[in-house]
Design a protein around this nucleic acid. Structure first.
Lengths: 212, 212
DNA sequence: TAGTGTGAATGGATTCACAGCC
DNA sequence: GGCTGTGAATCCATTCACACTA
């Protein structure tokens, strides 16, 4: 891994490369060219080579890339070659669906606890998970310490999001995946990734709407 | 609205401006400067002014922007000043959570039907919605025609996503919001917006991981 | 021939600097 | 004094062109 700062778009694409490579692996492809990868992802071959070149020389001229090796390398770059303990706040519709989502575990993210502010929900088990029960928000700091938590998912209503974010950050969490439709204001050292479901539809509305 | 092609990043930010403006409106702010807006969203004031200038002159020098007016204008630009009928495929964990999500309706997106391939699920009502029941995938074309559907949400497992996308597109859908962890291959005229939940966490892993 | 890796050129978004208006 | 709108300058990601290797 080189010392230079990596362009943000490159990091985003790295995840897509990994996803595609894993699919290729499952269908028994053991080598792939930047051109093939580009086709599948609707990017350019040069871009993929540039992106990978930020981190080293992974390919064989004339041959392409070794799928298994590249998977290992990208996982290492992204930091997903180990297990991350993750915690989730907000046991509403979305929160419980996310708790039961298998895709996280497949990528090495293990959900260790779910929290909700509603005392009526505390203690209730979450369907579709092995043995998770809803905990009180007050237990967050202890859980963060106990399980070395660095990442958390925020799936609470807009009004509660900023407060929850502050609790998490002051407990020591370093990255937040935010589903609340609000821009969180936290220390700049904390990484934030946001998914606003309505915003996604608005983008489509714009693109489709400007067509007849 | 000008004829020039709008930068993609600008369109993405437009949604954020709208969200922030709606929050300001609820807290009784009736005017706002680009600097205030920039602070809240962690952007630069110039960028906001440039973005808005693509579409016209909405501000008052010395004063700022009228919150209500700007909301109206941005909604018009995004095409959300009308109701969009939307359809959702995949009544698993995530799909049912999305069906019950109130945020879509607030932004003018009305979910009119939910589909699933599992015959055992067809006919079952969806909790948290008024009167939606799960329908057979075969009914998609009829529903698209009947309700003038242009946007659809894909919340099916990876293996099913490409097929579902093709069914939707050939039925006439113009934009897809895809939650399956796969890159969909459809006609270039179809707008696609993708949310891969695991990818979001990977991005955080990278950012947090490169810190000590 | 098929394919990677990379400096140089290009293109497009962001920021600067400032004119113009309240 | 405060703030918008915008050409010019800057910055940064993408693409081009090609040396190099299997």
């Amino acid at each position: 891994m080189k010392p230079t700062s990596i362009p943000d778009p490159t990091v985003r694409r790295l995840s897509l490369y990994l996803r595609e490579l894993e699919t290729l692996w499952r269908s028994d492809h053991r080598t792939v060219s930047s051109r093939k990868l580009a086709q599948a992802l609707k990017l350019t071959a040069t871009q993929i080579r540039k992106d990978l070149a930020y981190f080293g020389q992974f390919g064989q001229r004339g041959i392409g890339y070794d799928v298994g090796e590249l998977i290992t390398k990208i996982r290492h770059i992204l930091g997903t070659d180990r297990t991350w303990n993750v915690l989730l706040v907000g046991a509403g519709n979305l929160g419980t669906a996310l708790s039961a989502y298998r895709g996280f575990a497949k990528k090495g993210f293990r959900l260790v606890a779910v929290f909700d502010a509603d005392p009526g929900k505390v203690g209730r088990p979450i369907a579709g998970t092995d043995d998770l029960t809803i905990r009180s928000i007050d237990d967050i700091p202890a859980m963060v310490r106990e399980h070395d938590i660095r990442l958390a998912i925020v799936a609470v209503p807009q009004e509660a999001a900023q407060t929850v974010a502050e609790v998490l950050v002051s407990a020591g969490v370093r990255g937040l995946l935010n589903f609340a439709p609000v821009s969180l204001d936290v220390d700049a050292a904390v990484a934030i990734s946001s998914v606003d479901l309505a915003v996604q539809l608005e983008q489509l509305s714009f693109q489709v709407g400007s067509q007849p």
